[in-house]
C-alpha cells in the first residue's frame, strides 16, 4: 500500500505520458513516427517538387545520383528514371502507404475485435461460425488472398483497403478471442452477471478493456504488416494506381536499375519503409507496457 499512487487530482494523461517516456527508444520511435506522419500530411507544401505534376519534371534529369544539382532543384536523394525527385516521391508515397495501412488496420481491428469478442462471450454456434471462417481465411497465405481480391475488385486505394481488411480481421478476431475466453471465466465477469448488468455492457465495458493489450500489440505489428503488404501488392503492380504512388510502387520503379548500379531509386524508398515499420513497432511495444496497469509500479 505504501507504494500506491494517490492519483487524485493528477491528470491521467500526464501519468500516461511520463510512463511512456521511460523508454528512450520508444520516444525516439514516436518522434520518428510523428515526423513521418507530418511529412506525409504536409507533403504538398514541403516537398521541393510535385513528382506527379508533369510540368515540374525534367525528363533529362532521369536517374541522377543523390546530391546532384538538376535544372531547377537539387536532388538530395537522386531521381528515378522519369527524372522525378526521389525525396518528394518518398513523401508522397508515405502519404498513400500510411493512409492505406492505418485505414485498413483500423477497420480490421474494429471488425475483427468485435467478432472475436462476441465469439468468445456467447460461445457455441456463434463461436464456431466466426472462428471457422477465420480459420479458413488464415489457412491461405495473406498475399494470395490479397492478390485474388485485388484482381477481382480491380485497382484503387479503396479496393486495396478492402482486401487488406479481409486479410487482417481474422488475426484480431483470433487474438481477442483467446484473451476474452480467459477473461470471460474470471470472477469479475461472473460478478457483473450477478449484478444483472446487460450483456452489451459486460462485453464492452468489462471484457473489452481487459482484452486490448494483446490487440494493441497485434494492431501495431499489423499496421506495419499492412503497409508492407500494400507495398508488395504495389510492387507486383496490382496495388495502388500509379497516379497515387506508394512506397512499394517507388521501390518497384527502381528495381529494374538495381543491378546497373543506380541503387538509390529503390534503396531510399525501401529505407523509408523500414524506418516507418520499425518506429511503429517501437511505439506499439511501449504502448502495450504502459496500458497494462498491472505492470505499473
Amino acid at each position: 500500500m505504501a507504494a500506491a499512487v494517490q492519483d487524485d487530482g493528477i491528470n491521467p494523461w500526464r501519468t500516461f505520458a511520463s510512463d511512456f517516456a521511460e523508454k528512450k527508444l520508444a520516444v525516439l520511435g514516436l518522434i520518428v513516427f510523428v515526423a513521418l506522419i507530418a511529412a506525409a500530411i504536409f507533403a504538398p507544401w514541403i516537398t521541393p517538387q510535385n513528382p506527379y505534376d508533369l510540368n515540374q519534371i525534367d525528363f533529362l534529369d532521369g536517374r541522377l545520383e543523390p546530391g546532384s544539382v538538376g535544372s531547377q532543384i537539387t536532388y538530395w536523394l537522386g531521381t528515378d528514371d522519369q527524372g522525378r525527385d526521389l525525396l518528394s516521391g518518398i513523401f508522397y508515397g508515405l502519404r498513400t502507404s500510411l493512409a492505406v495501412g492505418a485505414a485498413s488496420t483500423l477497420i480490421a481491428l474494429v471488425l475483427g475485435g468485435a467478432l472475436g469478442l462476441f465469439a468468445a462471450y456467447f460461445g457455441g454456434r456463434v463461436d464456431t461460425l466466426i472462428m471457422r471462417i477465420a480459420d479458413l481465411q488464415l489457412s491461405f497465405p495473406a498475399i494470395l488472398i490479397a492478390l485474388i481480391l485485388v484482381s477481382a475488385l480491380g485497382q484503387g486505394v479503396d479496393k486495396v483497403i478492402i482486401s487488406l481488411v479481409a486479410v487482417q480481421w481474422a488475426y484480431y478476431a483470433r487474438t481477442i478471442r483467446g484473451t476474452a475466453l480467459v477473461e470471460r471465466r474470471k470472477e469479475y465477469v461472473e460478478a457483473a452477471t450477478c449484478l444483472a448488468i446487460s450483456h452489451r455492457r459486460i462485453v464492452f465495458k468489462h471484457l473489452m478493456p481487459n482484452c486490448t493489450p494483446p490487440l494493441i500489440v497485434v494492431g501495431t505489428v499489423q499496421v506495419a504488416h499492412a503497409i508492407s503488404l500494400e507495398a508488395t501488392l504495389s510492387f507486383l503492380g496490382i496495388g495502388v494506381p500509379i497516379t497515387e504512388p506508394s512506397l512499394g510502387l517507388l521501390i518497384k520503379n527502381g528495381f529494374d536499375y538495381m543491378l546497373s548500379g543506380d541503387y538509390w531509386v529503390s534503396f531510399y524508398p525501401g529505407l523509408a519503409l523500414l524506418i516507418t515499420i520499425v518506429s511503429i513497432n517501437l511505439v506499439g511495444d511501449q504502448l502495450r507496457d504502459v496500458l497494462n496497469p498491472r505492470l505499473k509500479k
Binding site: 474470471k186 470472477e187 469479475y188 460478478a191 468489462h206 478493456p209 481487459n210
Partner: peptide
C-alpha cells in the same frame, strides 16, 4: 484478485 475488474 480475479473478482475485481483490474481496469476499473
Amino acid at each position: 484478485f480475479a473478482s475485481l475488474n483490474p481496469r476499473l
